[in-house]
Design a binder for these strands. Structure first.
Length: 585
RNA sequence: GCCCCCGUAGCUCAGUGGAUAGAGCAUUGGAUUCCUAAUCCAUGUGCGCAAGUUCGAUUCUUGCCGGGGGUACCA
C-alpha cells in the first residue's frame, strides 16, 4: 500500500502562458483535422512542458509523439501538419521548431512575457495563489508530541513540515486548519507524574530507587521543585513513610496534571518561538471525558468490526489490509492509544474536514494501515486520510554526530537549536530536503552566515533588492518604497528589458504559481525550497552582470520594476516556508 | 520473515516516461574605481544490479544487493 495515497482530483490550472500555448496547439490540431492533414478524432492526452534547455524553446509539446499510434504516421510528420495549421491571433509566438523524436518547440516573443511582471505587481502577496483546492476543508495535524518532555529536533522537522504544508495548501485554495493533538491521557502521563513525585520524595529526604522507565531528564527535577513551591501545603504531597511512594496515587496524579500542563506550556512557547501556531489544540482526554471512546467502541462492536478474544477487545483491521487485528481494550480493561486514535480520527471527519493529513515520524508508519482500516470500517474513504512520514534528523556539529539519548534525558532540544542557529535558518534547513529522506542538520553550518548556509543566500536577494529600492528613492527615481507597487499609475517601458538574464528571470517568476500547485498537490514543501534556490541564483547572476540603477532613467525604472517583482515572489515563497524576508542584512 | 523510506558527482541532496541528468559543499583558478563579496564566473568518465512494460525507462513493475526505520494486550 502506498504511504501517501494522494487524491488526484485536484487539477492544475497551469500558468496562464502555458494555457494559452495549449489552446493554440489544440486549435492547430483541430485545424489539421479540418484540412485533412490529420485523421479527425480526439486529441490524446498531451503535455505542454517547460523544456530543460533554452534552445528547446519556452514551451514544448509532445502531442505529435502521443498521436503517432492513432494517426499511424511518423511523429515528425504529424508535428509538421500541426505547425502548418497554427493560428496565433495574439501574436505571441516568435517561432516554432520540430526537434528530436517529434517535439514541437515553441519560442515566444519577449513582449508576450512582460504582462506577467505587471500581474505580479498587481497581485503582490497574492501572486502564486490558486483555487486548486476549491475551498476543500483540510486539516493538518502535526507535532502532537506527548507532553512528557521538551520538543527535540525531530519534532522541529515535523513542525516545519506541517506548518509549511498548511501554508502551501491554504495558498493553493484549500481551507486549512492546523491542529495539535495532546496525548494527555494514559500511561505516559502517569509515568510523568510518578517521575516528578519520586523526585519530590527525593528532595524531601526519602531514599528513592528511581526506575529506568521513568523520565530521567533534569527538567523533571525542575518541575518537582515547582510543584513543591506551588503545592507544598497539600496533604497528600507530604512524605508518608508508611506508604510506598509509588502507591500514592493521589500525589502521582496531582503531579502528572501539574507536570503535563507545565510541559505543554513550554511546548507551546517553543513552537511559537519557532513561528508555528495552531488553530486548535485537541485534548485526548476530552474524548474520554465526553464518552467518545466508549461510543466508538460500542458502535464498531455493533458493526461486528470489534470483537472479544482472550479477554481483550480487538479491531478487525486485517479485513481492511492491515497485517493483523489490533487490540483496542486490553484484558485488564485499559484502552490502548489506538482506541482513542480511532475516536479522534472519526471526530476529524465529523467536524467536516473532507481531507485529513497527519504528519508523523517515520517510526510510526506501522500505524497507517490500522487508522485507514478504522476509517474504512466506519464508512469513510481512507484515501481522504494522508500521512506524511517525516524521516529522521541526524544532528551534527562540525560533521560529528551529537549524542542524543531520550532515556538518559540528554538531548538537544528544539529550543536550544532555535536559540543557537535562529528560527529562519532552522526552518529553511528542515525544509531543504524531501521529508522522504533522512536529514543531516549540522549546527555549525546552520549557524554560519556564509554562502554555505542557503537561508542567507536567499534572504540576501530580498535584502539586496530592498537596498536598491531605497537607493532609487534617494536618487528620486522613485518617490517612495510604495511607488513600485503603485502600478495603475505607473508602468515603465518594459521593452527595455531584453537581456537574456532578464528574460530568464521573468520566465522563472512566471512559473511560481505552478510550483506552488506542485508543492500543494504532492504535499512537498521542499519544492518551494528548490525553487527559491534557483530564483536566488538567477537573481545574483543578473545582479553581478547588469547594473539596475544607471544613468539611463527609463532603463533603471524598468529594471527596478523587474527586481521588485523578484522581491515579491521571494517574499511570498519564503512566507510559505515560514521564513522571514529581511529588508537589510 | 513481513512493512515503510532511501540508493543519482568525492560529500549532502534535487530532478525527469522523452531530446545534452542538475545544485550546494569540497578542489583548482579568476572577478569588486560600480546598486551589500552573506555575491558572481570557470572547473565533473555519476542514476546500486538484473529482468519486464514502452516507440522511448535514471523515472513505472518485479526480483536481488546495500543503508535506515518499524514489526507488542508499548507509546
Amino acid at each position: 500500500m502506498m504511504t501517501l495515497n494522494l487524491r488526484t482530483d485536484y487539477t492544475s490550472k497551469g500558468t496562464p502562458m502555458k494555457n494559452r500555448v495549449r489552446e493554440i496547439i489544440l486549435h492547430a490540431v483541430e485545424n489539421a483535422f479540418a484540412k485533412g492533414l490529420l485523421k479527425a478524432g480526439t486529441v490524446p492526452e498531451m503535455e505542454i512542458e517547460t523544456p530543460r534547455h533554452d534552445h528547446h524553446g519556452d514551451f514544448s509539446s509532445n502531442v505529435a509523439m502521443v498521436s503517432a499510434s492513432v494517426q499511424k504516421m511518423a511523429p515528425k510528420k504529424i508535428a509538421q501538419a500541426i505547425v502548418d495549421s497554427i493560428e496565433d491571433p495574439g501574436g505571441i509566438i516568435e517561432k516554432m521548431e520540430i526537434a528530436g523524436p517529434g517535439f514541437i518547440n515553441i519560442f515566444l516573443k519577449k513582449s508576450a512575457w512582460y504582462p506577467l511582471l505587471t500581474a505580479i505587481h498587481h497581485k503582490k502577496d497574492a501572486f502564486g495563489r490558486s483555487d486548486l483546492g476549491q475551498g476543500t476543508k483540510v486539516q493538518v495535524e502535526f507535532v502532537s508530541a506527548n507532553p512528557t518532555g521538551p520538543l527535540h529536533i525531530g519534532h522541529g522537522r515535523g513542525a516545519a513540515v506541517g506548518d509549511s504544508v498548511g501554508n502551501i495548501l491554504a495558498f493553493a485554495g484549500f481551507d486549512v486548519e492546523k491542529e495539535y493533538y495532546i496525548n494527555d491521557s494514559g500511561r505516559q502521563i502517569r509515568t510523568l507524574g510518578l517521575s516528578a513525585w519520586l523526585r519530590i520524595c527525593e528532595f524531601l529526604g526519602q531514599d528513592i530507587n528511581f526506575p529506568e522507565t521513568c523520565y530521567q531528564g533534569d527538567y523533571i527535577r525542575d518541575i518537582a521543585r515547582e510543584i513543591m513551591d506551588a503545592l507544598g501545603d497539600v496533604p497528600c504531597l507530604k512524605p508518608d513513610p508508611s506508604l510506598d511512594p509509588g502507591d500514592n496515587h493521589e500525589a502521582i496524579s496531582m503531579c502528572a496534571k501539574f507536570a503535563a500542563e507545565k510541559i505543554l506550556r513550554g511546548i507551546r512557547e517553543d513552537l511559537s518561538d519557532f513561528g508555528v501556531t495552531f488553530d486548535r489544540w485537541f485534548s485526548e482526554q476530552s474524548l474520554y471525558d465526553a464518552g467518545r471512546v466508549d461510543d466508538v467502541i460500542s458502535h464498531y462492536r455493533s458493526l461486528g468490526v470489534i470483537y472479544e478474544k482472550d479477554g481483550a477487545l480487538w479491531f478487525a483491521t486485517e479485513r481492511y489490509g492491515d497485517e493483523k487485528d489490533r487490540v483496542v481494550v486490553r484484558n485488564n480493561g485499559i484502552t490502548t492509544y489506538f482506541a482513542s486514535d480511532i475516536a479522534y480520527h472519526m471526530d476529524k471527519f465529523h467536524r467536516g474536514f473532507n481531507r485529513v493529513i497527519d504528519v508523523w515520524g517515520a517510526d510510526h508508519h506501522g500505524y497507517i494501515n490500522r487508522i485507514k482500516a478504522s476509517i474504512e470500517a466506519g464508512g469513510g474513504d481512507p484515501d481522504n486520510f494522508n500521512v506524511i512520514l517525516v524521516q529522521l534528523v541526524n544532528l551534527l556539529r562540525s560533521g560529528e554526530p551529537v549524542a542524543m539519548s531520550t532515556r538518559s534525558g540528554e538531548f538537544v532540544t528544539l529550543k536550544d537549536i532555535v536559540k543557537e542557529v535562529g528560527r529562519d535558518a532552522a526552518r529553511f534547513i528542515f525544509l531543504s530536503r524531501s521529508y522522504d529522506s533522512g536529514l543531516d542538520f549540522d549546527l555549525e553550518v546552520a549557524k554560519q552566515q556564509t554562502s554555505e548556509n542557503p537561508v542567507y543566500y536567499v534572504q540576501y536577494v530580498h535584502a539586496r533588492i530592498c537596498a536598491m529600492l531605497l537607493k532609487a528613492c534617494e536618487q528620486s527615481l522613485l518617490t517612495g518604497m510604495d511607488q513600485m507597487e503603485d502600478i495603475p499609475f505607473f508602468t515603465p517601458h518594459l521593452l527595455l528589458l531584453c537581456e537574456p538574464e532578464e528574460m530568464a528571470l521573468i520566465k522563472l517568476l512566471a512559473s511560481f504559481p505552478h510550483v506552488v500547485e506542485k508543492a500543494a498537490a504532492t504535499l512537498h514543501p521542499h519544492v518551494i525550497f528548490t525553487y527559491l534556490m534557483s530564483l536566488a541564483s538567477r537573481f545574483h547572476a543578473y545582479y553581478n552582470q547588469h547594473k539596475v540603477i544607471t544613468d539611463h532613467r527609463e532603463l533603471s525604472l524598468a529594471r527596478l520594476f523587474l527586481v521588485s517583482a523578484v522581491k515579491i515572489v521571494i517574499g511570498n515563497a519564503l512566507g510559505l516556508l515560514g521564513v522571514s524576508a529581511p529588508e537589510r542584512m
